[in-house]
């Protein structure tokens, strides 16, 4: 089973080419995000973006669609119905792409651990580069996480998207197990 700690240790020996290192410098210093407002964590983003904490000083900014974004923030619990849309959004994003899971709900289900509708582990379905613990994490914790993500990208450790490509069967099997079918078939898609 996918263990994030082992995975990052494996990629620690640096096999990147020079141009990839240069590209990683740009990617680390300009992170556009798409935050998926599934739960209460979306509420912590406005203070992080505006004048008190000002994430733009790290070169980060919000983007309107997943295609334009580099990092997907899953801000809170995910119901099975939302998970389908999250997988859609994640697969629409362009490589390299990163995922940050917010709060204990994405980590282990949090207070919804026994709910019939919400999943308990996000990294079963899409690769998560970074988790922020807390219920919900405060803006300080979020800024700290962004710092960590930037350092990870600079070192070439944020390789979740590669992991997703290499282990797609495993992720897809998990998605099918929990959702039966990833394809969205609601009344707006008829």
């Amino acid at each position: 089973m996918f263990n994030i700690v082992e995975d990052t240790q494996k990629t620690r020996e640096d096999t990147r080419k020079t141009w990839e290192k240069i590209a990683d410098y740009f990617r680390a210093n300009s992170i556009w995000m798409k935050w998926y407002c599934t739960g209460c964590g979306a509420m912590e983003m406005p203070p992080t973006m505006t004048s008190r904490f000002d994430m733009e000083q790290l070169g980060m900014g919000p983007m309107a669609t997943p295609r334009q974004a580099d990092v997907l923030l899953i801000t809170g619990y995910l119901s099975a119905k939302t998970l389908r849309r999250v997988i859609y959004s994640y697969e629409q994003m362009q490589d390299p792409k990163y995922v940050i899971g917010f709060g204990s709900c994405t980590l282990n289900g949090g207070i919804y651990f026994d709910s019939y509708a919400t999943m308990t582990r996000l990294d079963h379905y899409i690769p998560v580069d970074l988790y922020i613990a807390g219920c919900m994490p405060r803006p300080e914790a979020i800024m700290n996480a962004f710092d960590t993500l930037i350092a990870m990208i600079k070192k070439g450790e944020a390789k979740g998207w590669k992991h997703y490509q290499d282990n797609y069967e495993w992720y897809n099997a998990n998605q099918i197990h929990s959702l039966k079918e990833v394809r969205v078939k609601d009344e707006f898609h008829e």
């Binding site: 590209a23 740009f26 505006t50 004048s51 733009e56 000083q57 070169g59 362009q94 390299p96």
Partner: peptide, 22 residues
């Protein structure tokens, strides 16, 4: 808006980053 703001060459980084992606 009383923020600190990005570095002045942030726009260059943004453009080169976008060009480096798939």
């Amino acid at each position: 808006q009383r923020r600190r703001g990005p570095r002045w060459f942030q726009q260059f980084i943004d453009i080169f980053k976008a060009l480096s992606k798939s």
